[in-house]
Amino acid sequence: MKFVVKKSSNGEFRFNLVASNGQVVATSEGYKQKASAMNTIASIQKSAGGATVDDQTNA
Rank of each mutant, 00 (worst) to 15 (best):
A48Y: 13
Q56Y: 06
V4T: 09
S9A: 11
S36P: 01
F3V: 08
A59S: 15
M1L: 00
A51M: 15
Y31P: 07
V24F: 04
S9D: 12
A35C: 05
A35W: 00
N21W: 02
G30T: 02
S9L: 09
I44C: 13
G50L: 04
Q56C: 13
N16L: 05
F15I: 02
G30P: 03
K7W: 00
A26P: 07
V18M: 00
M38H: 10
N39F: 08
Q56E: 12
Q23M: 08
F3C: 08
L17D: 01
A59V: 15
E29W: 03
S8D: 11
V5R: 04
S43R: 13
K34W: 03
K46Q: 14
G50M: 07
A37Y: 04
S36F: 05
N58G: 12
V25Y: 07
Q45H: 10
T40V: 12
T52H: 14
V24S: 08
T52V: 14
M1N: 02
V5C: 09
A51I: 14
N10H: 04
Q23E: 12
Q33D: 14
K7P: 01
S47I: 09
K6H: 13
G11D: 02
I44W: 14
A35S: 13
V25R: 09
S43M: 04
K7G: 01
G30Y: 01
